Amino acid sequence: MLGDRRSLGVSDRPDFALVGLLRIPEIQTSPWISLSRRVAFAIGLLFSAALVVYFGRDGYHDNSGDELSFLDAFYYATVSLSTTGYGDIAPVTAHARLANIVIITPLRVLFLIVLVGTTLGVLTERSRQAFKIQRWRRSVRNHTVVVGYGTKGRTAIDAMIGDGVQPADIVVVDTDVIALEAAANAGLVTVHGSATQSDVLRLAGAQNAAAVVVATNRDDTAVLVTLTARELNKAAKIAVAIREAENTHLLRQSGADSVVVSSETAGRLLGISTTTPTVVEMMEDLLTPEQGFAVAEREVEASEIGGSPRHLSDIVLGVVRGGQLIRVGEPEVDAIEAGDKLLFIRRAAK
C-alpha cells in the first residue's frame, strides 16, 4: 500500500491534494459586498429560527407567564443563536425540545460560523479550491498551455488575449511561485511544477489542449518539454521559443510545429533599425494585435475559390494548404482551392 502511494503521479492525486499545485482564478468581489451578503445571511438565519420558535410557541415557557409573541420568538432566537441563553424563555415540551435539537442547534452553529467570517474563509478556501479544480479538470478542453511565465510567456499571452482568447482558456505552468502569483492575478489558471514531467503537463490538461506554447529560459528544457507535450498530445499545435538557431532541428524532431529563435529575431530587427527604422516600426505594428495592423488567418469563402489571392480586397501574404504555408506569388497558389486558409493583413480593432 505504501509503495502504491509513493508511485502515485501528480495528475492522479485526489482533487483536494492538488490545492496549491493547481490554482483556478477566482472572481474578485468588493469586501463590502461580501460583508453585506454575510450580514444578510445571518439575519435570514435569525428570522428562520424565530419562525420555528413562533410556530411552536405552545411548547415554550415564558417566566412572565404570557403567551409568546413574534418579538418574544425573535428575542429567544437571538439569545439562543448567540449562545447567550438568559433562561427567561425555555422549551418545555418534547416537541419544542426536539425542534431545538434538530433545527435551532444547527442554525446556532451556522450562525456562529457566519459571524466568524475570516475563520470561515480560511476553513473553506481549500474545499472551494478542491471543488473548482474538480469541475475544471472535467470540463477543460481546447485550451492553451503556456510553459514559462517570463518575458516571452507573458508577451505571448498578451498577444493571444489581444486576438480574443479568454484568460480562462490559458493555463500557465511554471516553477516560480512569484511568476505564478502574477499569472493568477491576471485571471489565468496556474500549475506549479516542472513541465518536463508528464504528470505536471497532464495536470495542466495538455492531453486535451489545442495548443502548447513553450517559453522556457533554456533550450534543452524546451526540447524536453516539447517531447513530453507531443507524447501526450499528437494533434496540438506546439510553438517553441529558443535562444540558438542551431537547436531548431532538435525542436522540429521533438514535435514542434513552430520554432521562434528569439535572439536572432531580435538581432535582425536591431540590424534593420540602423538603416530603416520604419520597417521595424511596421513589424512591431503587425505583431501588436490591439492597434494598427495585424496578421490574421481566415477560411476561404466559396466565392473566392478558383480566383487568385492577389486579386482579393484583403492583402494576402500566403495560403495555407494541407498544413503547409505557400507564399503569394508562387505558381501553386495562382488559384485558390476549397479548404485553403488565407494569411492576410487586417486592421486591428481599436
Rank of each mutant, 00 (worst) to 15 (best):
S34L: 11
L35V: 08
R38S: 05
L46N: 02
S48W: 09
Y54M: 08
D58F: 07
H61G: 08
L68D: 01
D72L: 00
S80K: 09
S82L: 14
S82F: 10
A99I: 11
I101N: 05
T118P: 04
L120T: 09
S127G: 09
Q134L: 14
R137S: 14
V140G: 01
R141S: 12
N142L: 10
V147F: 05
G148W: 06
G162H: 07
V165G: 02
V165T: 11
L180E: 08
G187W: 09
V189T: 15
T196M: 13
D199F: 06
A206N: 05
Q207T: 11
V214T: 14
N217F: 06
T221D: 15
E231Y: 10
L232A: 04
N233H: 03
K234H: 12
A241G: 11
T248S: 11
L250R: 02
A256H: 01
D257I: 10
S262V: 15
A266L: 13
T275V: 09
T276I: 09
P277V: 06
E281R: 14
E290T: 12
A296T: 15
E297T: 12
S303D: 14
E304L: 03
E304Q: 07
R310T: 10
I315W: 07
V316R: 06
G318K: 09
G318Y: 02
V320N: 06
V320D: 02
R327G: 12
G339S: 04
F344N: 00
R346Q: 15
